[in-house]
Design a protein around this nucleic acid. Structure first.
Length: 193
DNA sequence: AAGGCGATTTTCT
DNA sequence: GAAAATCGCCTTG
């Protein structure tokens, strides 16, 4: 498995969000390597998107990496979980794609150990907080390049039919909550909802 | 299946 | 100091 080229991340954010479906998210750690096939994503589009952390170009320590070039990891913590995004758009344009769910592809045993043996397999990586825990993705990955290193994205089996709809978990975002910027592989059992 | 609530970080005041 | 947050777990029934 080798990382996708830099050019892959230069697609427009909505196109990138859909293109990421089927790709393999890979994380190498001392405990071993895990890989998940991406089956659900959401696009967040900077200044004009009320649901985005970078709405109105809000630039803080947390959102800083979104303003940089595409192809880097944007991780952040909410409640008790870490969530993983791919930075998109060119430098100065704070856009990103949230990875909401993956299908276990390699290192399944390690995922069970991290998440708890009692879980059903379909509950292992079927949510943005679950997949980061299963794969060992954390704030240490904030700002790292996805073209090299221990966290990267590689090519994988193309998705079957793709569905689109409103994003999840953004009730206080005005008109933006209705934008159909969520993409998932239809009838894949690892999709979060 | 659905509803309530934990527990932590960031950002704003 | 306080509120809100791109969530998940555990409890009910």
């Amino acid at each position: 498995m080798k990382p996708l080229s830099k050019e892959f991340y230069e697609q427009k954010t909505l196109v990138l969000a859909e293109s990421l479906l089927g790709k393999l998210l890979v994380k190498e750690t001392n405990e071993g390597t895990t890989a998940g096939r991406i089956v659900e994503t959401e696009a967040y589009r900077g200044p004009m998107d009320q649901a985005a952390h970078s709405f109105q170009n809000k630039r803080t320590k947390r959102t800083e990496v979104m303003f940089g070039p595409s192809g880097y990891a944007y991780t952040y913590v909410m409640h008790t979980h870490c969530l993983f995004n791919v930075v998109s758009a060119e430098e100065g344009f704070p856009e990103a794609v949230l990875v909401r769910a993956v299908e276990p592809y390699a290192g399944r045993e390690l995922m069970f150990e991290r998440r708890g043996k009692h879980h059903k397999e379909s509950n292992l990586t079927s949510g943005p907080g679950k997949l980061t825990k299963a794969m060992g993705i954390s704030m240490e990955d904030y700002g790292s390049s996805l073209n090299s290193g221990k966290l990267f994205i590689a090519d994988g089996p193309k998705p079957q039919a793709v569905s689109t709809g409103p994003r999840v978990g953004i009730p206080n975002s005005g008109d933006a909550k209705a934008y159909p910027w969520r993409f998932w592989e239809r009838s894949n059992r690892f999709v979060s909802k």
